[in-house]
Design a protein around this nucleic acid. Structure first.
Lengths: 259, 259
DNA sequence: AACTTATGTTCGTAATACGAACTTAAAGCA
DNA sequence: TGCTTTAAGTTCGTATTACGAACATAAGTT
């Protein structure tokens, strides 16, 4: 067994697949519709090459075209949904998160790491609207600035954690944001020690959240769960003294339920 | 401008991309983890070919491997998320659907057609648990047996509707399920005429739902919205006389808000 | 209508994807 | 534990496929 990844140019590396997926990923929130030339520019590909991939993706039903514009179809959700539906614990986690929402009136989610982001995989939304609207399943946020991201980063082996710290781009989203690598390292080590993370208005003003890791009964890291709330309404003492213990209890319940 | 789709073997059709995506889509809820041989068997590909695509997807971060087992990573959610996030109206629709949930205590969703399925794109879940648990964004259900699916099918031009009726596989999910093509055509024409669909325990016992189409202010079909409920708790008269008008009002509000 | 820009098409060919066959590793069984 | 079977890794020759340059056509702009 050899877990090393192929590199472009390696014998078994299929360049055409990589290029085609690059074209597919060129579409995003900022570029929902594009012409052939825009795709070619955005991917840095020769136009004829980009055209072949667009037309193939069109033939496969993943993009549609209107005149010169191409855009994604709902079929691409199939490519992502398989990951969600393959999680055998999703339903049970959903129940526990909804229990949190019912009890505390706050949104609660499970996320996993993907690159330098966290991806929301399970979500229970509160009736309160702040920061609840756009955070659907599939949402990606920078791991460094989210409580769940910090919990997950803190779980990384040191070489991976150091690699993350070396490459991560730090942004001052708010005046509270950590933008110093040493400060972030210290914070992550503290999170590792404490077993939880609280992020207070570092990603967005008013957004306060607490997260803990969730393990299955077999010891496998399932992700991190959080409670997110409004800093105007909920003070830090409540987060620490009421929400955190609740979250830790739920993480334990999930562990028991996934044995 | 020529909107016809390429076929396999056409000059500009990139077979390697198609094959690679086929490998990616071989993973689903029933096959979340697979060995190389299982993938090869499932896709009908030569083993060496399947191996190349698996290793390339691994190199790109879309699959991970543990020993001989391959499974998807959260990165594949990127491929689907772009569609969600490219919908400029998602946030406003989410608000309206949550208004329905707050007022009626029922789940409410927006879905679009993809092939013979509907895909849930926006969702507001009720606190009631029946059929709410597994219906996350990205969920696919057979269009023929869901209220939103029927509304969307009824919007299709006749040639497309007839093609659907000719190819769709009808299943008796419950004793109430329509399994006769003529009966389904009649139902869909009735839906077209009425401008809404009510599906009563045809997909699952206890599941009752009503749906209407939603158009943007510019006249573009955004999808269908529904209210789903429990047949034991909510009778047909309530669905028709209370939920439907509410839904129609929300569809109109969304149209106004998307001008 | 003329000009500019974007897209479609063709074609020669380098390279790339392919699969058959051999080798190695892992799993299963007694 | 040793042997057998099965699965996976690797090599290599080559058919085919993806590639891009150049030309042709279509669409957009003034």
């Amino acid at each position: 067994m050899d877990d090393r990844k192929l590199k472009p140019g390696d014998r078994d590396y299929v360049g055409a697949l990589a290029s085609g997926l690059e074209v597919l990923q060129a579409f995003d929130a900022e570029h929902p519709r594009m012409t052939l030339s825009e795709v070619a520019t955005r991917t840095g590909m020769d136009r004829a090459k980009a055209r072949r991939f667009l037309l193939t993706l069109h033939a496969l039903g993943f993009v549609k075209r209107s005149g010169r514009q191409f855009e994604l179809t709902p079929r691409v959700m199939r490519l992502g949904y398989a990951y969600q539906s393959s999680n055998q614990y999703r339903a049970v986690i959903q129940q526990y998160l909804e229990g949190i929402t019912a009890e505390l009136g706050e949104s609660s989610s499970l996320a996993v790491l993907d690159g330098d982001d966290v991806v929301y995989v399970v979500r229970s939304a509160a009736r309160h609207r702040l920061m609840a609207i756009s955070l659907a399943v599939g949402t990606r946020l920078p791991a460094a600035y989210t409580s769940m991201g910090r919990v997950l980063l803190a779980q990384l082996p040191d070489p991976e954690l150091e690699a993350f710290l070396a490459r991560v781009e730090l942004h001052r989203h708010t005046p509270a944001s950590i933008v110093d690598r040493e400060a972030l390292r210290a914070e992550l080590l503290s999170v590792r020690e404490a077993g939880y993370a609280i992020v207070d208005q570092e990603l967005d003003l008013g957004l306060r959240s607490v997260a803990v890791p969730v393990f299955s009964g077999a010891g496998e890291l399932l992700g991190a769960i959080n409670i997110s709330t409004n800093a105007v309404r909920v003070d830090m003492a409540t987060v620490r003294d009421s929400y955190l213990p609740r979250l830790q209890a739920v993480a334990e319940q999930i562990r028991q339920a996934t044995r």
